[in-house]
């Protein structure tokens, strides 16, 4: 019946007030408090040969309102002090901001206990697995966030791990998350993983040879990140205000703040 379908039919009978059920539907129905909201914003992470970059915009929204123009989404994790000067891991969270904050604090507490017990910082791969279990522990009342973890692996190579809200995770070369993920990710596929790039004149059809993938140098990645966000700001209302970029290398973590359009 058309009246029960999501989309009303264009020709024929549509929803009629006369047909509104006059009695309660069988079974209990609850109109419950909704514990989630979407605070917008977008994040992006790219791993290089000897560095990893995680970036996020700093806008925090509620519907069409901008709550604040500066709410960081990228955090240092696992330092020995609250100032995180000697942190070795980066975490970005986007989605429901309160869950993101709670998740960040939980993971940081885990890293601090690890340091206390073992006298050394947690490795990125260990932290990545731990984050997955933390998310899965709340499988039936999830942290509503898209988390991305970054750092350097045991060989000093840049590492990026991305997660879904219930803890599925994978190590990747690059990942975009949040409101403008669908705008940024195809751009990254093309510019980082060289998707749909072929060597000119190498053949026709299946004979075409793909351009060889090489890790990008840091300065190019930084420009790429800025371009990605400038484009996202143009087309997505929940993205803008400021760009926070954290770059982790063997020398530590560097933070850069760049302006984005505020409109």
């Amino acid at each position: 019946m058309a009246m029960f379908s999501q989309n009303p039919v264009l020709n024929g009978p549509n929803y009629s007030f006369a047909e509104v059920p006059q009695h309660a539907v069988d079974g209990l129905r609850e109109h419950r408090f909704n514990p989630y909201t979407d605070n917008g914003g977008s994040t992006l992470a790219i791993a290089g040969a000897d560095f990893a970059i995680i970036a996020g915009d700093t806008r925090l929204t509620a519907g069409y309102s901008i709550n604040t123009r500066y709410a960081p989404k990228v955090f240092k994790i696992g330092g020995s002090t609250s100032s995180q000067d000697d942190a070795n891991i980066l975490l970005s969270v986007v989605g429901f901001a309160a869950d993101g904050e709670a998740l960040k604090e939980r993971l940081d507490a885990v890293c601090k206990m690890y340091r206390y017990r073992h006298g050394k910082p947690m490795s990125v791969s260990a932290c990545a697995k731990r984050l997955s279990t933390i998310l899965y522990q709340k499988r039936f009342f999830p942290y509503y966030v898209h988390a991305i973890l970054g750092g350097l692996d045991e060989d000093g190579t840049g590492a990026v791990y991305s997660y879904d809200p219930v803890g599925s995770y994978e190590r990747e070369q690059c990942r975009a998350g949040g409101a403008a993920a669908s705008l940024i990710m195809p751009f990254l596929d093309n510019q980082v993983n060289f998707k749909n790039q072929y060597i000119p004149g190498s053949g026709v059809g299946h004979e075409l040879q793909e351009r060889e993938r090489v890790p990008l140098p840091r300065n190019e990645v930084e420009v790429l990140v800025k371009d990605a966000f400038d484009s996202a700001v143009e087309r997505h209302i929940e993205v803008g205000d400021g760009l926070q970029m954290m770059i982790i290398t063997k020398d530590g973590i560097e933070e850069r703040l760049l302006p984005l359009k505020k409109d």
Binding site: S82, E105, A109, K112, M113, Y116
Partner: peptide, 10 residues
């Protein structure tokens, strides 16, 4: 004491 300090910070 470590646990107490962590939770105070949280």
């Amino acid at each position: 004491m470590k646990q107490q300090c962590l939770s105070e910070r949280l």
